[in-house]
């Protein structure tokens, strides 16, 4: 197994994530985060999760960046400069240890694309085998989202609706 595509992508991900933290101007951080989302979308596409890649590219790299930029366009330049105090010594010691712990725990995860993984043997086979016959929908992701698990999607739609209303109520002032 070669990593000719994964390794440059991983390097770009770490580079953009680190760059978003290091830069001094918030507006640069926002644009670098947009690039980070785009590389993340490429990772999802490479792993075969085309639907997730789609959402990541449109929402993460597109709409979220616009939201951030609109917000930043209304703040004064001295507010968007970042003052970074040096991190406390306990964080410098504890966070790498936490990272090592997570890497150690990742050893117990099932291998990528393992057909015997717990997530692949529970209800997924039923969805994959019956989606076409039940719903005439070849894209199993869509039939799970909009039919088998539609109540979750309904509540997510309510959440999106509520966020739009809440932003309107909190931020909008009447022009009159």
């Amino acid at each position: 197994m070669t990593y000719s595509f994964e390794l440059p992508l991983l390097a770009l991900l770490i580079l953009t994530a680190g760059g978003a933290i290091i830069v001094k101007e918030l507006i640069s951080a926002v644009l670098i985060l947009g690039a980070y989302s785009f590389f993340l979308a490429l990772v999802w596409a490479w792993l075969g999760a085309a639907d997730v890649a789609f959402v990541e590219a449109v929402v993460g790299a597109g709409l979220a960046t616009v939201f951030f930029l609109l917000t930043l366009s209304q703040t004064s330049p001295e507010d968007t400069r970042i003052r970074r105090p040096p991190p406390p010594i306990i964080a410098v010691i504890a966070l790498p240890l936490l990272g090592l712990l997570l890497l150690y725990a990742a050893n117990d995860l099932p291998a990528f694309a393992d057909p015997g993984a717990p997530a692949s043997v529970h209800v997924s086979p039923h969805y994959i085998e019956n989606s076409l016959a039940d719903t005439r929908t070849p894209n199993v992701v869509t039939s799970v989202l909009m039919d088998y698990r539609v109540l979750d999607t309904l509540i997510e739609t309510v959440v999106v609706f509520t966020s739009g209303i809440a932003c309107w109520l909190l931020l909008r002032r009447d022009a009159e």
Binding site: L70, M146, V150, L154, T157, V160, L171, R172
Partner: peptide, 25 residues
């Protein structure tokens, strides 16, 4: 599935545009 997808699309589109309006106005 088709009808609920149209519903989700309308809901998300309106919410996103309304957030942009409230952010900028």
């Amino acid at each position: 599935i088709l009808m609920t997808q149209i519903g989700v699309a309308m809901d998300v589109a309106v919410a996103a545009v309304s957030i942009v309006f409230s952010l900028s106005r």
